[in-house]
Structures are given as structure tokens and as C-alpha cells.
Design a protein around this nucleic acid. Sequence first.
DNA 1: TCAACCGCG
Length: 854
Amino acid sequence: MSTETERRVGNLLASSKEAVHADDSSCASSQGVKQSSPSVNIIKSESTLDADKAKEKFSVELKNRQEKMKASDGSKAMQSFREKLPAYKVKAEFLTAVSNNQVLVVSGETGCGKTTQLPQFILEEEISSLRGADCNIICTQPRRISAISVSARISSERGEALGETVGYQIRLESKRSTQTRLLFCTTGVLLRLLVQDPDLTSVTHLLVDEIHERGMNEDFLLIILRDLLPRRPDLRLILMSATINADMFSKYFGNAPTIHIPGLTFPVTDVFLEDLLEKTRYNIKSEFDNFQGNSRRRRRQPESKKDPLTELFEDVDIDSHYKKYSMHTRQSLEAWSVVQLDLGLVESTIEHICRHEGDGAILVFMTGWDEISKLLDKIKANSFLGNSSKFLVLPLHGSMPTINQREIFDRPPSNMRKIVLSTNIAESSITIDDVVYVIDCGKAKETSYDALNKLACLLPSWISKASAHQRRGRAGRVQPGVCYKLYPKIIHEAMPQYQLPEILRTPLQELCLHIKSLQLGTVSSFLAKALQPPDPLAVQNAIDLLKTIGALDDMEELSPLGRHLCTLPLDPNIGKMLLMGSIFQCLGPALTIASALAYRDPFVLPINRKEEADAAKRSFAGDSCSDHIALLKAFEAWKDARNKGRERAFCWDNFLSPMTLQMMEDMRNQFLDLLSDIGFVNKSLGSKAYNQYSDDLEMVCAILCAGLYPNVVQCKRRGKRTAFYTKEVGKVGIHPASVNAGVYLFPLPYMVYSEKVKTTSIYIRDSTNISDYALLLFGGNLNLSKTGEGIEMLGGYLHFSASKSVLELIKKLKGELNKLLQRKIEEPGLNIHAESKGVVSAAVELLHSRIVRY
DNA sequence: TCAACCGCG
């Protein structure tokens, strides 16, 4: 720090001191007192009477409408369609079970109609029993799309418009009315509802669908519900699962009765690798001929953590196990790699179908972008499949710009075969009706959480039998189909029955915060009640993090900051970034960056133009050395382009997803509303009041630091390059898709990041280069180092040294900032802009005086 | 040198 800077910062700080104390008296004035009137009770009972009459009337009306509808000619066809569904056969049994039991587990295969029929049976029954007005049936879905499509389907089956008796509610979007008695919502929406209404007093029937998927929200909800049931003996809970393993859920709920509904899909024939090889005569080459793979022979090395399925196949004696198969097939099986997908095998399978099988689309399940891209190239170069007038080959991946193209769903022109190369996205989120052939490589990329190293991992692994079954089912929607499994039958038999539940595979800080906000007791005792409780170390890591960012106190209770974070539907770090953005007057950028981090990256990755896509992202980042600034600038440029009416071209030219940007905008508005609800933002002051520093990138980066801490990386100069180190795992790399990838030297000594993931190596996915002053003022608590010569952070991992007077000044400024924050967080409505001006100006002055020594 | 997927008043 230059002496000039030191002097200026010191002066600013001194001037602010007086303001803070002079304004203390204003604190009490903003608290309003609610007045209660003695006449309230009388009015209430009269209105209750009126309400009862109105309800009775409405129940009658609902019943009349329903009977009229059933009698109408138009509904005959619909009725007979519904009666053909397997769910119809269990209608009476189901309704009896619902009325006699508090909890019921229903398992059913796809196509049995459980999702559309069971909630509807309850609704119809309640309406005919003249309880229509009193019932409130909620059915949760794990995905937004299904909440919408199922509710639309049921409305049309009932001959109503969506939003009448049947509606939906998902984040930022709903179609429901006062008439709505059956509501489909995402599980997340219900969990938020529980914050206001912990006993679900307004709900009579709750159906939780797709519990077999074992998503975090669903597992979380089940713990809450099991505790809630004794307090709500009248509540009816129906758990719906797609597969046969209903026992586990039944046991969890005290041996609740179960009903099974058979499926109604066309038969699908399985062809395993060994039989496929007999048919196609495809020759799998071992790694000695082909460097792509590691065949079973070479990999007999003493690795400590080997995948059990890999080991299993290595131990198989091919010649005796497959003695009925041809020599050729046995040789190929010998060479087949358990680790690496053979793209030639996929290509030959596609070719086999196209040459020898009947019409129908082909759906190929692969693990990721790279495989899809490489297979696409291979097919284009294939002399038979490369004929683009006969074959329509489409990639399908969550971050490819083709994701919303109609041609994926539409039937191709006659004489043309559609071939979709997809990730797991086509397993349950996207349904392509005309698929007749599925090719399943048997793997998917899966996150896991290494609690020891506090590290998220994203690695390809074998799917479960349940997933394989789901993929296979994709071939039987319109006619009998075939599923080609590119792995031997013994691998399939050894696959785990189910995927590990998400609660065991993810960091838990957001969940822990949610548990605290619902007052469900201590985090560890609550989570111990889960269907499959998470590793105590993972729980401890989450609690430690919440303490580090100041959301929980030493007693593990919510701090004032923690209580605010509970109201924001965000990861606690990102929520903190928003609060800091509003306090330090760069609210706009904080809203934009928070919405992108909370939702998804708006940048798309097209297959053949990745260099251009990379360049577009870099140009948004400018010289900021920040992926977060790139997001911010891209969003601002999009708004600008949209105002000028050239949104489409802008998005296309800059490799941005219009849908993601729109969602970001909607989420920004939601966050702004929530900040206003909790008092951090007073909308009547106008946007300018909260955006004084929004164009000041140093300040924006400091806010990023405040939010993302303790996700800090040290940049250390190694000759002409920079190496990066974190406290938990040591050396990490910048993810190659980051704007900071390939940069040799950085102007500032630290990075903050939002995600650190182990794939082929440990990478930080997105990063922002920040100064030591940003870290000192907006990072974690400062401690004097033991030698007394400097300041430490992150339990001594980070060390700062400077002259005694500078250290004193920084500590003083940090102290003032903390005081300011404390007051603002305890009383968000406080207008402290005037009094805080000096402290904030001092901080800004320091942030601008960046000098690099590292 | 790399990019599974889903979700929140």
C-alpha cells in the first residue's frame, strides 16, 4: 500500500466513525407494532359461518359439474381410454386403501397411468362425496416439465381448462385458481410451502411421485413427512414409485400397505453385447492395436479403488463362460474394455439396425459431450450412415444449442431415419415418442462427494439396473422395440439395483440450512432419520461451512445472517453474495451472477464451433480475468440487444441460450422481491440507490469474494506460469472452459470460485481473480499470526504481511465493515447509506489501490 | 485440455 493510499483510507475511515455513532438513535424508529381489535373475534365467527355455506354450495356445484361432464357425449371416448389403463383396474382397491390407511405405497411401471389416474381418482371420489370444497390434493413431481404436462393432461381428461380444479405450481410459474383442488407442484415448491405451514394444515391428500429416483428433495421430504404424520392423523400420504422396490419405502413408514400396478408398454427385446457381436461380427480390438481402450488384460494392475464391475469382468474366463459363442465373439469379448466406450462398436450397432431392422428412430445413450461429438464425426464419415438424405443424426445434450429443436421430437420425413445421440437427459426429462431402438452404453456421468477432501466428483460410472430398465423402456412407447446393451449380460446382472441416493452424493450445506429454518431439531439427529443417512463427516463439513460463512453460531443455531439466508432459495454462499451486493450497492451485478450460478450457465457449447464459442465468452470477460464478469456482461448485452429487438441474432452470434437468460431474468426479479420482503431493498428508493458501485468491477469482485469465501485459491508464480492451490486438496487446475484457462500470469494474487470438481483432474470451473485487499476486507475473519508479524485467514492457510501501520489500518477498516454489516443484518431496513459512506469509500479506495507482490 | 442431470414463496 502506498503511503498516499494509507493516508486517504485512514482519513475516510476517521470521518466515518463519527457518523456511525451520531446515528445510533435512529434504530428503534422503524419497528411497527401491530394493533389488535377486540371486535375481530365476532366478525370472524360470522364470516366462518358464511364461509361454510359457501363451501357447501361449492361442493354441490363441483359434483354437478363432474356428473354433467361424465354424462356428456364428448367424454365417452376419454372415459373408455382411461378405463383401459392398468391403473383403472385397481381404482376401488386404491380408494379403499387410501381411506383406511394414512400411508400407502403404490408401485407401477411406466405407462400404467399412476401419475395421471391416482390423483384424479381421489379428486373424483372427494367431489362425488360432496367433500370437493374441503379437499386439497397435492401431488409433487421432481421436474417442472412433468408438473405442467401431467396437470394439463388431467385437465383435458376432465374436460376443463388448466387451472380450474386441476392446476400446477412451479418456481416462477403457476396456473391455479381458488377452485383448484388438485395441484401438481415440484417437490421444491412443497418444501418452501412447509416453511410457512409446517403441518401442511391446508392439505388433505399428498402424493409424492417418482420417489424411486431418490432425489435430495424427495428424500428430505420423506423424513419431514414421517415426523409429521402423527400430528396430522387426517392427512393421507401416497408414495408413488416406478419400480418394484416399494418395500424399502413401506418399511420406512411402518410397513405401510403397498399396491402394485402392472405396466402397459410394448415389449422390448434385450440384446446383450455377446449376442450383438454374433449378429454384427464387429471386431473389438484390444488396446495393443488401438490406443483408445484398456482391455481387461492390460488393466490387471493393483489399483486400490477399482470399480467392482471392472474387477468382476476381469475375473471371467471368457472361453469357458462363452463357449457356445463363436471364436470371433470370444476374441472380441477378450478385447472389450470395461473402462472405455468403443465408438466403432456403437457405429456398427447403428449400422446393423439401419441395414437389417425395420423403421423407427434410434436413441443412443452415451456419457457426455465428447463422446457424442466424436460419434457424430464418425457417423458423418461413414460411407453408409453419412448419407444425410437418409439419416437425420441429432445430438442431444443439456448444454448444446440444439436442445430445443423441434426436429428431435418430430417424426422425420418418410424414408429418413432419426438417430439421436443423447446423454442421460433422454432417460426421464426428454421423451422422444417414435423411438423403437435403444442403444445403451451402460454408463452415465455421476456426481459423488468425497467428504474427506470436501470434493465433488463427476465421473462416468456404471448405471443401476433401474436406470438400464428406464433406458430400455424408451424403445417401447409406440410399438415393440429392441434395446441393444453394449455390455455383457454378466455386467448387467452385477449392476447395483439402484443408484446411490442424491443425499449421499452431494454437499449438504443448503439442506442443513433448510433443516434449521424448518426447526427440525439438530441437523445430525434429523438427518440420521433419513432412509439412507448421509456420512456424518459430510454433515459436519456442511455445518462447518455454515459456521465459516457466519450462517450458524457456535451452538449450531441460526445467526441473524443465517435466518436471512433461509428465506432465499439459494445455496447459502450465493445468498450471502446477494445480501452483500445489496448492502454494498452493486445489487444488479449480484442479482445477475447469483441467478446464473443458481440456475445454469447461459453459454451453450455447439459441436463444431467451440473455438468461436470460447472467443465469445472471452470477449465478454474483457481483461477482468473473471468468468463471473463474463456472465454479467453477457447478460447485460443480452438485455440491451433485446431492447433493440435483435435478441435472436445476438444469442446465436454469442453462443447464449435465450431460455436460460430469460430464466435468469425471472429469477433476478424473484430474488429482488425476496430481498424487498426481508427489508434489504426498499424498492421505492429506486434502483440507483442500490447500484452506486455496479460499474465498479473491483467492488463487484469484492462482493463475489464476500459470497464465495472460503472458496479461495492462491495463485503462485512458477517461472512464466501460474500454479493454483487450495487449502483442502492442494494443487488444482483452471477448467479449460474458463476464461482464465491458458492465461499465464494474473494481475492479482488470489482467485475465488464457485465450484471445484474432480473429473480427469481437479478443476475450478469458474473463477474470478481478486486482490489481497478484497480478500482481507471481504473474506473470512482475520487473526494475528503467531509470530505477530502479519495477518492470517482460513485457519492460517492464507498469510498476509505488511507494515504494522497498514495492518492496523486494515484491521480497523475490517472492524468497521463488520460493524456495519452486523447492524444492517440485524435491522435490514436501516438506512445506513449516509453514515456508511465513509467506511465504504475507504474500502473502495483500498480496493482500487491494487499493487501486486506475489 | 474439457463440458451428467434435476430443483426452490
